[in-house]
């Protein structure tokens, strides 16, 4: 009797293990499939001129996406400029200063904010910035993208700061180091690897966002490095090119997708590698 039960249990275990393994490989497999698909479609149009040249007049094959590459860089850069300091500040507040009551409220709101669909943030940016400034602009896009980074950076910062042992704070306080300096010079450096990881992942996330930019930055088929005006962005350009009826633009959209994905992947890989090294040199 016991033997039979044992066999059934072993069988159940194997079935469970098999299903989970399949799910695991399935998930990874979809990523590989996606990567392969983008590479196959995009590799042919990928060339140096894609990032150095501007678009040709519509219908004339050739040209590149330099305007979109620069636009994306500027918009993401501006988003980081305000999103990162504010997010890190909020994370430090949550981990080091917030009382249990207020902390829970702020934390909950950050979690809700990170769950808000990004298209809603785009509309938010539209009403707050675009209607006020009287037109679409890179700044409005940077605002919307910054809002996306806020909860991600705040929560990861909070979590890695919480991992810093209280003993280190006490050691510093007991040396007569003020609290603010203890946080800045002892706690934050100890958690810096994790904070950088969270920040870079937020950057990778917004680099690939399209929806918030549709209502804010609009897109631009011409060179524009002025963030107070509509700008091009990689994701917007991919979206546009994909719905225009020109094969060479479809090719460029694939290549741009490949480029964007490579950048995001690279950020992820660099972050993973960098977070392995730890401590003083």
């Amino acid at each position: 009797m016991e033997l039979v039960l044992g066999r059934r249990r072993r069988l159940a275990d194997q079935v469970m293990r098999g299903l989970c393994t399949a799910a695991g490989f399935g998930g990874a497999g979809i990523l590989l499939l996606l990567l392969a698909h983008v590479v196959v479609n995009g590799i042919s149009a990928l060339s140096p001129q894609l990032v150095t040249e501007l678009p040709t007049p519509l219908g004339v094959p050739g040209g590149g996406l330099a305007h979109a590459v620069v636009g994306s860089a500027i918009i993401v850069g501006l988003a980081c400029l305000w999103g990162i300091p504010l997010g890190i500040g909020a994370g430090i507040y949550l981990a080091e200063y917030a009382g249990p009551g207020v902390g829970t409220v702020v934390r909950f709101m950050a979690d809700v904010l990170s769950g808000v669909p990004s298209i809603v943030l785009g509309i938010f940016g539209y009403t707050i910035i675009v209607t006020q400034m009287g037109g679409f602009s890179g700044l409005a896009g940077a605002f919307a993208l910054g809002v996306i980074t806020l909860p991600i950076i705040a929560r990861t910062t909070e979590e890695v700061l919480r991992l810093v042992p209280g003993e280190l704070r006490e050691a510093s306080l007991a040396l007569g180091v003020p609290r603010w300096r203890t946080i800045l010079r002892i706690v934050v450096p100890t958690a810096s690897t994790g904070m950088i990881t969270g920040t870079m992942l937020a950057v990778a996330r917004i680099a690939g966002e399209t929806a918030p930019l549709i209502f804010t930055t609009l897109g631009n088929n011409f060179w524009s490095s002025d963030p107070t005006r509509p700008m091009a962005a990689m994701t917007l350009t991919i979206f546009q090119y994909a719905i225009w009826p020109y094969e060479y633009l479809h090719q460029q959209a694939w290549a741009a997708s490949l480029l964007l994905m490579t950048v995001v992947l690279l950020i992820n890989v660099i972050v993973r590698l960098a977070s392995r090294s730890y401590g003083p040199r």
């Binding site: 510093s172 040396l175 300096r181 002892i186």
Partner: peptide, 30 residues
């Protein structure tokens, strides 16, 4: 606390700092 020093139960050197930096941490940070 600068006048009354404290040593804790578990050794707690600052993990991001070298031996030297740990020793002078109090001076640098104040």
């Amino acid at each position: 606390r600068r006048l009354v020093g404290m040593v804790f139960q578990r050794p707690n050197p600052f993990p991001t700092m070298s031996v030297f930096d740990n020793v002078v941490a109090g001076l640098r940070l104040v």
